[in-house]
């Protein structure tokens, strides 16, 4: 087991009080696996990722309880020194905005070399040679010249490629990609995503991809975890989520993907309302207020985790034996449609 989170709770102390950003997240990840964390902004995805990197903003952010195990070693109590040995070496990270994530006063080559010098004991020359290889790997043309350039001389897509090169430089076991394509142009998004997928297969690196875009998920992930209000509301493999989604929030997400084959019956529809403020999270299901199938119990009690199958679990009261049976509102062919649209993205 590469990574294992158990009931992770993370809070931020602000002037107004405690914001409970992550409220009990559990999942695990094997070597070479690709999972997606999906949800709206503010649902706790990025904070979960930051906890895994030991990068919570200090002193406001803290792990309240729960455990993070990296290769079987408990990491939630790691010292800064111990985290340094993990970051870049065992886990690499790709950030959302390539325009601001690279140091403007350092050459691209130097920025890739840094981690190598730190973790692999290379000297400057060796590190630069390896940086050159990395830039070739992420398909940047004219590497000899580009390696000595500064970020502002790179386009957005190229910068994100350089970020990928930085994250992968030390051959980490795991790469966390936090909204890696959100800040890019649509055409560039597909290229960067393809690159990420190819590299993942080539290097057999495990990847956690954080996104709000189910289209991105479909093209790369094997497993999907849907987060809402600081908890995982539904988790399963790609098929479970796309074909057999059980949580009303997952249905909502599916219905809000634009598709070419929509009929009048399942027209594109947004989820009304906004996610709860985690400054004062609701006692019951966080989605209750926006849910078309809301019941009394949803308002008062947190729904238990229901195992649908070996791979698929859902936290929703609708799956309780006492609850009325509800059919998915998604049109059956919808899932195949999602596949098609994913194909279309890459043309």
């Amino acid at each position: 087991m590469l990574l294992e989170l158990k009931d992770l709770k993370v809070s931020f102390d602000t002037y107004a009080g405690e914001v409970q950003a992550v409220r009990g997240v559990s999942f695990s990840l094997d070597k070479g696996e690709v999972v997606a964390l999906v949800g709206e902004s503010g649902c706790g995805k990025s904070v979960t990722a930051q906890s895994v990197m030991g990068l919570l903003a200090k002193p406001a952010g803290r792990i309240k309880s729960g455990s993070i195990k990296i290769e079987g070693v408990e990491a939630s109590g790691f010292s800064e020194k111990q985290w340094e040995g993990i970051r870049g070496k065992k886990i690499g990270m790709i950030f959302q905005d390539p325009m601001t994530s690279l140091n403007p006063t350092m050459t691209i080559g130097a920025q890739i070399s840094e981690g190598l010098i730190r973790h692999q004991g290379m000297n400057k020359k060796q590190a630069l040679e390896r940086a050159e290889e990395m830039l070739k790997l992420v398909e940047i043309p004219n590497v000899q010249e580009r390696i000595h350039q500064y970020p502002h001389e790179f386009s957005g897509g190229m910068r994100q490629r350089a970020m990928i090169a930085i994250a992968l430089a030390c051959n980490p076991e795991l790469v966390i990609a936090d909204e890696p394509t959100t800040a890019l142009d649509v055409t560039i998004q597909a290229q960067v995503l393809d690159l990420l997928k190819n590299l993942q297969q080539k290097l057999e690196t495990a990847v956690i991809i954080i996104t709000h875009d189910l289209g991105v998920v479909a093209s790369i992930a094997q497993r999907v975890m849907v987060m809402y209000g600081g908890i995982i509301v539904e988790a399963g493999n790609l098929k479970d989520i796309y074909y057999e989604g059980k949580h009303p929030y997952t249905w909502g997400l599916m219905k809000s993907i634009p598709r070419l084959d929509r009929t009048k019956a399942d027209e594109l529809s947004p989820i009304e309302g906004t996610p709860p403020d985690l400054f004062a999270p609701p006692a019951g299901c966080p989605f209750a207020d926006r849910c078309d199938w809301c019941m009394k119990v949803c308002k008062t009690d947190m729904p238990p985790l229901h195992k649908v199958s070996e791979t698929h679990s859902v936290a929703c009261w609708l799956l309780h034996d006492g609850a009325p049976k509800v059919e998915s509102p998604l049109v059956p062919h919808g899932a195949t449609g999602a596949r098609k649209s994913k194909g279309a993205r890459h043309v």
Binding site: E272, D289, R290, C291, C294, M295, K296, V297, H320, G322
Partner: peptide, 10 residues
Amino acid sequence: DAFERVPKDI
């Protein structure tokens, strides 16, 4: 009455 339907509350 736990499973009584409640309208959503945007």
